[in-house]
């Protein structure tokens, strides 16, 4: 199967596929762990999308049907927006499935193609590592540690910790992708 880094196979895949990844007997233990990690991230993403939708529906329901507005439903929805964005990006990276311009690279001989792909993953690794470093500092700064959200007074580091966390996960996946391309090439 063509493993290009764009969203085509992903968008195309809306048939019933079982999400649970088949763990074959000869799977390398590294792949085994990566599969577990991806599964965990997918579950978090599912919960995020589901709860975001439910919280907004509850907001409408309480305001218009029960006539007593719920405070904070949009705040909750916005956290999950953050989670969906970064978890979704992690999943896309794990499947080497992000929007990119590939038709020029596709013209190259396959060994060179693999080289290019490895270089791209190294760049992703570098960017993610830098963002992890700054993200960790950001979430752990005293300023943000004391900050809370406006309506529900939730400590701000809780929703925001997804940023450094997802960057760390991206570091892991980019390394896994480098390994994948090197093995392939």
């Amino acid at each position: 199967m063509n493993q290009e880094m764009d969203n085509k196979s992903l968008l195309a895949s809306n048939e019933n596929e079982d999400l649970s990844i088949l763990v074959e007997a000869d799977t390398h233990w590294i792949d085994h762990i990566l599969n577990r990690l991806t599964r965990g991230i997918e579950i978090l993403a599912m919960i995020s999308v589901g709860l975001m939708c439910v919280s907004l529906i509850l907001g409408v329901f309480f305001r218009k049907i029960l006539k007593s507005p719920l405070i904070g439903t949009d705040e909750i929805a916005m956290f999950f927006m953050l989670w969906i964005t970064f978890l979704g990006a992690c999943i896309a990276l794990s499947k080497r499935d992000m929007v990119a311009v590939t038709f020029i690279v596709e013209k190259l001989p396959s060994t060179l193609q693999t080289k290019m792909k490895v270089h791209c993953q190294i760049l992703i690794l570098g960017i993610s590592a830098a963002l992890f470093y700054y993200g960790y500092q950001w979430v752990m700064t005293t300023a943000l540690i004391n900050a809370t959200t406006a309506a529900l007074k939730i400590p701000m580091w809780i929703p925001n910790m997804i940023f450094p966390l997802s960057m760390l996960i991206m570091v892991i996946y980019s390394i896994a992708n480098i390994r994948y391309y090197l093995k392939q090439g």
Binding site: L10, L19, M81, T85, F86, G88, A89, I91, V99
Partner: peptide, 22 residues
């Protein structure tokens, strides 16, 4: 049983736009 797959797809497809937004 379709729901988990739909929810994950939703997260990944929307992140294509929103990660670029970020």
């Amino acid at each position: 049983k379709d729901l988990p797959n739909i929810l994950v797809n939703t997260a990944v497809i929307s992140s294509i736009v929103t990660f670029i937004v970020a």
